[in-house]
């Protein structure tokens, strides 16, 4: 379970997140939506400490990851992340992208890491691409590999930072289908997305951020049909 308490993040004078508190239960799928600049990505990146919070606490399964005593690397091994721009390692083959961290960080043998990687590539439908370099893949394929790479560390939590925003329209579905498939496996997921239909279908809960505040926190059917705040109503009018 992820517990976020009074999270504040500033970049210099700019306060991007203002006192955010929420919980994400184990196995829950949370969609984080809101206008650009609202702090969605920053909030997500605080959960694996790619951004260090200015104030407040984040606890994962009761362990305070914002404490200076916490081993950040250990936390990150357990929290997978998928980026908008994939960030595959271009000098490694697809298979090596998947096996690198499990071998070097988790200490798995080449055979074990390879077996996990092959299984995952099959799950995302890219078995035949194992020996290719990322530059030979389409955007949608790259993102599916990136998801598999994060999963290869066998994390309990997956963070998705606008996973389909950099994709051509016809590739969005193949990536969303993979994420949907994951939602049913019981892994905890936080997804920053602009795909409202997807959020509605997949998420157990929707967090709506605006101007650094957590404005709404509701199940998708309630959020999308009867949003409480004016700001959410305006936002939905524009995007739906």
């Amino acid at each position: 379970m992820i517990r976020i308490e009074h999270l504040v993040k500033s970049f210099g004078d700019l306060e991007v997140l203002k006192d955010i508190s929420t919980d994400v239960a184990t196995g829950e799928v949370v969609a984080i939506i809101g206008p650009s600049g609202s702090g969605k990505s920053t909030m997500l990146r605080c959960i694996n400490l790619l951004e260090v919070p200015t104030a407040g606490q984040i606890l994962i399964d009761g362990m305070e990851i914002t404490s200076p005593k916490c081993d950040i690397l250990k936390v990150r091994q357990n929290v997978g992340m998928v980026f908008q721009h994939f960030n595959l390692f271009p000098h490694k083959t697809v298979l090596d992208n998947l096996t690198y961290a499990p071998m070097k960080v988790r200490g798995l043998s080449k055979a074990d890491a390879g077996k996990i990687a092959i299984d995952l590539l099959a799950k995302v439908g890219l078995s035949e691409k194992a020996d290719q370099y990322p530059s030979r893949l389409s955007g949608g394929q790259k993102q599916r590999v990136a998801i598999a790479r994060a999963l290869a560390m066998q994390p309990d939590i997956m963070l998705f930072d606008e996973p389909t925003s950099a994709l051509d329209p016809e590739m969005v579905k193949e990536v969303l289908d993979v994420i949907k498939g994951l939602a049913d496996t019981g892994i905890t997921m936080c997804i920053v997305t602009h795909e409202m239909g997807f959020a509605r279908e997949v998420a157990d809960r929707v967090l709506f951020l605006d101007g650094g505040y957590l404005v709404e926190d509701a199940p998708p059917d309630i959020f999308f049909s009867t949003p409480k705040s004016d700001r959410a109503q305006q936002f939905l009018e524009k995007v739906l």
């Binding site: 690397l73 980026f83 961290a101 960080v105 560390m153």
Partner: peptide, 15 residues
């Protein structure tokens, strides 16, 4: 080198 490479490595817990 793209900043995302560093972030990807960090997100995987690579020292």
């Amino acid at each position: 080198v793209d900043k995302g490479q560093r972030e990807a490595a960090m997100s995987l817990g690579v020292p």
